[in-house]
Design a protein around this nucleic acid. Structure first.
Length: 262
DNA sequence: AACCTGTACAACCGCCTAGGA
DNA sequence: ATCCTAGGCGGTTGTACAGGT
């Protein structure tokens, strides 16, 4: 029995998103909230599949996203969490408010891996390279590479993080032991779910109920926002659908401050 | 100036899982 | 208990851009 495609792909657009598409999606989501992703493209007038819309939103368009390179503190935290959790980027991202799993994964692959190697540390085992190359950990790692994905994750957990806990327990219990005092980070751990329903892609989608919009003002307090011109975007200067005034009106009663965006 | 190569990151793909029917 | 669907996750690919030759 073949797996059904996530959506009817015929006639759907792929590849990079245009500014107009972004605007349509953001406009729709801000005014209607997140509901059934499959319906979003239809209702928003987009020729994209729902999955693509969700990804675009969680990885790029969410207003609470930080843009730009990870700070040193964030990097350290990522390394520390990776040592505990392995490649479970969504769980790592959950500890870094405003960062997405995709962003962290990319940053890991392009920056941190190299840094660690330069420092003589194996980015997979987090052991010194000389040990990692010849020691039992490396062998275990190699063995893991030959295993299917899930067992790999499980065994990685066992050997790298040393915990046999299930996911939920890990997230709650695996507080970084050697992480820097987390200004960023730990506000991360402690407030991620409380302050921002979407501090990570995983947190966001599941934490915010469909149509839940009351937490938006909290999100807007995040210091970094995507680098598009939100001011003109929200005020409708950019052409296309207009969400500016209505949006501010809509959220005025929950403290939505237009000045933040202008 | 043109071409080549490496890098960064956005986006896609396929699988897994939770939850509802 | 089983099936189906939507959403989530991690790995991989594609592409734009920067730097070097």
């Amino acid at each position: 029995m073949g797996r059904q495609p996530c959506c009817e792909k015929v006639g759907l657009k792929k590849g990079p998103w245009s500014a107009e598409e972004d605007q349509k999606l953001v406009s729709f989501l801000l005014s209607h909230g997140q509901c059934c992703w499959r319906l979003v493209p239809k209702l928003a007038g987009l020729l994209r599949c729902g999955k693509s819309c969700r990804l675009r939103w969680t990885n790029y368009l969410r207003p609470d996203l930080k843009r730009g390179l990870l700070s040193e503190e964030e990097e350290k935290l990522v390394i520390d969490l990776h040592a505990q959790l392995g490649n479970r980027w969504s769980k790592i991202a959950a500890r870094l408010p405003g960062r997405t799993d995709n962003e962290i994964k990319n940053h890991w692959n392009t920056h941190i891996k190299k840094k660690l190697k330069k420092m003589g540390i194996d980015p997979i085992t987090h052991q010194p390279l000389s040990l990692a190359q010849h020691g039992p950990l490396k062998q275990q790692q190699q063995a893991r590479l030959d295993e299917p994905t899930k067992p790999l994750a499980a065994s990685q957990e066992g050997s790298v993080s040393g915990t046999g806990a299930n996911d939920k327990e890990e997230v709650e219990e695996a507080a970084p032991t050697s992480a820097p005092p987390m200004g960023v980070a730990c506000s991360a751990a402690s407030s991620a779910s409380a302050v921002s329903p979407s501090c990570s892609s995983s947190a966001s989608a599941s934490a915010a109920p469909p149509g839940a919009v009351v937490d938006w003002p909290d999100l807007f307090e995040m210091d970094g926002i995507m680098d598009i011109d939100w001011a003109s975007f929200l005020s409708g200067d950019g052409g296309g659908s207009r969400i500016g005034v209505d949006l501010f009106d809509h959220y005025s009663d929950v403290g939505f401050d237009q000045q933040v965006w202008m």
